[in-house]
C-alpha cells in the first residue's frame, strides 16, 4: 500500500535519515522503535511532508512521488488519505472536541455539515468521549485530548494513520486508555505506523517492528520473531537495556 525508498534528510550538517526503506501493507500495524535522536519523528514527518526530505521516493496506492520534488497539490491530496497523531496532541485550541473532528471533513473534504457532525459523533463515541463533544481542549485531560486527536484521525477514514509517540506525554495512568483505543483500531484492520516506546504495544498489537538507530534501519521483521529472536547484536542490546529498565522500574 505504501512504500518509502531511500529517504534521506539532513538538518544542516547533521544527517538524520541516511537512506531509509520502509514498506507498509494494508492492515499492517508497524511499530518503529529506537533510541532518542535516531530519527523516528523525522521519518514520520517527512512521510507526511511536514519536513521536506532531501531525497527518496514514495509509492502510495501505486502512485510514485519524489520526496524533494512533490508539488503542493499532491501534498494536500496525499494528506487527505492519511492522518497524523502527534505526541503533544495538537488539538485546535479554538475548537471544541467535535469541531476538532469535523474540521477536516467540512473544510478539508467539503462534506455537508450534518453528515460531518454525524461522522464526528461516531468517531468520538468510538474513543469514549461523545459526552465531551462540546468541551474545548483546555477542559480535557491529556489522555482525553489524545483520544479526541485519534477520533479526529479516524473520522476522515484515512488509509493510514501515523502516530508519533502518542502516549509519551501522558501520565502512566492515562496511557492505558489511549493504548486501548489504538488496540481496537488495530483489531479493526486500520493501517498504522506507530513510533512508540511502549514495548507491550509493539510486541502484542503490532505485527511488524522496525528498529532504527542513527538514521538507519538496523532490523525489521515480524514482531514475534523480532522480540523472540533478534538477529542483530544492536537490537539485542537495545532490548536488553529496555528490559533492564523494566526490572529496575518494577
Amino acid at each position: 500500500m505504501l512504500e518509502v525508498k531511500n529517504i534521506q534528510k539532513s538538518f544542516g550538517k547533521l544527517e538524520v535519515l541516511k537512506g531509509v526503506d520502509l514498506q507498509v501493507g494494508k492492515g499492517d500495524v508497524v511499530a518503529i522503535l529506537g533510541p532518542s535522536g535516531s530519527g523516528k519523528t523525522t521519518l514520520l514527518r517527512c512521510m507526511n511532508f511536514l519536513e521536506r526530505a532531501d531525497g527518496g521516493t514514495l509509492v502510495f496506492d501505486g502512485e510514485h512521488y519524489d520526496f524533494p520534488q512533490i508539488s503542493k497539490k499532491d501534498v494536500v491530496r496525499l494528506r487527505k488519505k492519511t492522518a497524523f497523531v502527534f505526541q503533544d496532541y495538537n488539538l485546535f485550541r479554538n475548537k471544541t472536541a467535535l469541531q476538532n473532528v469535523t474540521e477536516g471533513l467540512i473544510i478539508g473534504r467539503k462534506m455537508p455539515k450534518a453528515q460531518a457532525v454525524e461522522t464526528g459523533e461516531r468517531a468520538l463515541e468510538k474513543v469514549g468521549l461523545l459526552d465531551r463533544r462540546d468541551a474545548y481542549p483546555s477542559q480535557l485531560s491529556g489522555g482525553q485530548q489524545q483520544r479526541v486527536a485519534i477520533a479526529r484521525a479516524i473520522a476522515v477514514q484515512p488509509e493510514i494513520i501515523y502516530f508519533d509517540e502518542p502516549t509519551s506525554a501522558l501520565d502512566p495512568e492515562l496511557t492505558g486508555e489511549v493504548l486501548a483505543v489504538m488496540r481496537t483500531l488495530a483489531d479493526e484492520g486500520m493501517t498504522m505506523l506507530v513510533v512508540t516506546h511502549e514495548m507491550g504495544f509493539a510486541r502484542h498489537v503490532s505485527n511488524k517492528v522496525v528498529f532504527m538507530e542513527h538514521g538507519e534501519i538496523v532490523e525489521c521483521g515480524e514482531s514475534h520473531s523480532f522480540f523472540d529472536h533478534p538477529k542483530q547484536a544492536r537490537t539485542r542490546a537495545f532490548l536488553q537495556t529496555l528490559s533492564g529498565e523494566l526490572t529496575h522500574a518494577g
Binding site: N48, L50, V76, R79, K80, T82, A83, F84, F86, D88, N90, L91, F92, R93, E103, G104, I107, G108, R109, R152, V156
Partner: peptide, 16 residues
C-alpha cells in the same frame, strides 16, 4: 507551530 501542522495534516490547505 503544531496548530498549523495539525490543520494541514487534517487535509486543510495552508490558506484554510
Amino acid at each position: 507551530a503544531g496548530q498549523l501542522e495539525a490543520a494541514e495534516c487534517a487535509g486543510l490547505t495552508w490558506g484554510q
